[in-house]
Every structure is written in C-alpha cells, then in structure tokens.
C-alpha cells in the first residue's frame, strides 16, 4: 500500500474540507477527494473499510468540540447516500466576545493543571492548546502552586465517556452492609466530587429512580451498553451536588475530638449549623471539643474516625459509634498475637 498519510493529516484535511464547503460534502465526495481518504478510495468498488474509518474520524473530530453536522437531502430525506456533512464556520469559531486577559489565562492554566490523571487531564491539555491559540501570554502569578484533584477510581473514564455519549452502563456495585455486590443498569447523569470522593449520579433503570453511587464501591469494569438516553433537563451536576449537601446537612454526627489533633483539624471543616466556627475562632478550653458535623456515608466516616484512634470519640448516632468500635476491635485483633496466615508468605 502506497498510503502513509498520518491520522492527524487526514483529520485536519477533513476539517478543512468541511469548513470550506458551504453546502457540505457527501460521503462519496469526502472519500474520493479528501487527503488521506482519496489515496485509498476505489471508484466503483467496495469502500467499506474506508467508510468505517470515516465514521470513527467523525467521532474523533466531534470529540474535539468541532461541530460536524449532518444534513438530510431536502428531496430525498432518509437516503444516506445523499447525506451531506458540513462544519458551519460560525459554530466552529470561538465567539469573538470570548476573550481572556493575561491573568485569566493564568488562572485557567492552573485550573487545567489540577487534572493530572485520568481522561480529564487530556481534555484540559487540549483546552489549553486552544486557549493558547488566542496568543495571550500568561503571567507568573501562579508559580509555586501545584493543586491536584485526585481521580484514582478506574471507573471514572468510562463513566465520563458514557455520560458524554449518553449511553447507559452496567456495573457491579457493593452497597455498604450488603453481603455481595449487585449488578446495576444505570443512565449516568453526572460525576461530582463531594468531600474528596467521586460520586456518580444516575437513573437506575431497574429501580426506576435516581441513585447516587460512590465510584470507590464500583467493583470491576464498567460496561457501556447500546442503550441511548435523552439528555436530562437542567444542570445535573449542580443538582447532584445540592442533593449531596442536603444529605450531608440532614445527617449530623456528634464527635468529641482532642484539641489540636489531626482529627480536630480535618473534621472541623465539616461542622454544620450553629457549630460553625472558623479556624481563627477555634474555642479554647480544657478537655475534648465537641463537633457537630455533616455526613453522607456513615461507613466511610467510621473508617475515617477509626483512623484517628484516641483523637476522636463518636457521641452519636449509636450506629456510627458501634461501627467505629467494630473497626477498632477488628484492627486490634488483627495486630495483636500471631500473624494471620492466609497465603504463601
């Protein structure tokens, strides 16, 4: 085969051809004339491989935010051979009033840098390339900052892709307190990070109700299905965060913490209601300090409080208190006495 046109050259040529063409091009016109396709096009013969290539390229181009549209033939709607493909320049160009100052550019650069793992790091890198095309220089006011949002959960990328393509997903979910995991069939709506944990909000199709899932409790791989769903109304991410905040405030927990301890410093940021105190206004006094904090997940909170050992004591609710006692008892049993033999070590 003589053809050695790199993928980016084919994609670039496709974009140029579709922007330049006022009325759009048919698939046959694209495959026979555009650089990267034309070299492999065989007139009057089967071009199925090339057509599949074009389908994938269309997705790749659209993924980059290039508005590649499909126009039906006015005389013969439904005839795929007459479908025309086009990129409207007005929808392609960044609107003229979207401009950024040097300091805004700097802040956006830092916003992009918080993603250092997972697919969003690629997305933000491309966004930065596009921003740089505006030619504005960045200042150095954020030098010395290296903020990061963790994306450790392997399910994140597949879910983010599924949300974008609006396809339902299946996964095994381990509900706290349940014996084993259960298979879920979900229309994914939004990914939100709340209290340093990633949550998926979606419509559980079997239960016909909106559910919130912790990504860390998804067991194994997430599978995309062929079931496509309609884009939900409103702003699902904002609504999901508001709902988590509501749950958080509705489940108060009372904890006594040792003053000056890690437990105090980390839990006091979650104080709710009257107990709201800034770090500067931290009350002084002897003995432990009682905090009233919000919570969304008692099991995970129990893990966290167990890690504080003698620095934190649960006052209420009783379920949390029992859960912490269980955990500490288990850790003590596992670490005092002979090493539990379970393997080949």
């Amino acid at each position: 085969m003589a053809e050695a046109v790199p993928a980016e050259e084919r994609l670039f040529s496709l974009v140029l051809a579709l922007v330049a063409s006022e009325y759009g091009l048919t698939k046959a016109e694209i495959l026979s004339s555009v650089q990267g396709y034309r070299q492999r096009y065989r007139r009057g013969q089967d071009n199925a491989t090339l057509e599949r290539q074009f389908e994938r390229d269309k997705d790749d181009v659209r993924d980059l935010g290039v508005p590649l549209e499909t126009i039906e033939s006015p005389t013969e709607p439904g005839n795929n051979q007459l479908l025309r493909y086009r990129i409207a320049k007005g929808a392609y160009d960044l609107p003229a009033d979207v401009q950024f100052s040097s300091s805004e550019m700097t802040l956006l650069g830092l916003a992009a840098e918080v993603w250092r793992e997972g697919s969003l790091s690629n997305e933000s890198r491309r966004a930065i390339l596009k921003l740089r095309s505006l030619g504005v220089d960045v200042d150095d006011s954020t030098i010395g900052y290296a903020p990061r949002i963790r994306v450790r959960e392997p399910a994140f990328d597949t879910l983010s892709d599924a949300i974008n393509r609006r396809v339902a997903v299946r996964f095994d979910y381990l509900k706290p307190g349940a014996e084993g995991s259960s298979r879920r069939f979900v229309e994914p709506r939004a990914l939100v990070k709340h209290e340093s944990r990633w949550h998926l909000v979606g419509l559980d199709r079997d239960r016909r109700a909106s559910r919130t899932f912790l990504l860390s409790r998804i067991v194994g791989d997430v599978t995309k299905t062929r079931t496509v769903f309609e884009a939900p109304d409103g702003d699902p991410a904002r609504e999901a965060l508001a709902e988590l905040e509501r749950v958080f405030a509705a489940h108060p927990v009372e904890i006594d913490v040792v003053r000056g301890s890690d437990a105090e410093r980390r839990l006091e940021t979650r104080v709710i209601g009257d107990g709201l105190e800034s770090a500067a206004g931290r009350p002084t006094g002897a003995g432990p300090r009682r905090l009233r904090i919000g919570s969304t997940d008692l099991e995970l909170l129990a893990d966290e409080i167990a890690s504080y050992g003698p620095e934190a004591r649960v006052v209420s609710p009783a379920r949390l208190r029992a859960a912490v006692i269980d955990r500490l008892t288990r850790v003590l049993a596992d670490h005092r006495g002979p090493v539990r033999q379970g393997g080949d070590s």
Binding site: G65, L108, A111
Partner: peptide, 20 residues
C-alpha cells in the same frame, strides 16, 4: 478555510470549569 480559534468541546470546558 480556518482563521479563528476553535471552540472548546463539552468535556474540555467541563475540565476547566471544575478546575476553577
């Protein structure tokens, strides 16, 4: 064909928005 900066994709914009 082109002379202007391209728009952001939905996910590119989302990455920067959540970062901000």
């Amino acid at each position: 064909a082109i002379d202007d900066s391209p728009r952001f994709s939905a996910r590119e914009a989302a990455a920067l928005l959540a970062g901000l």
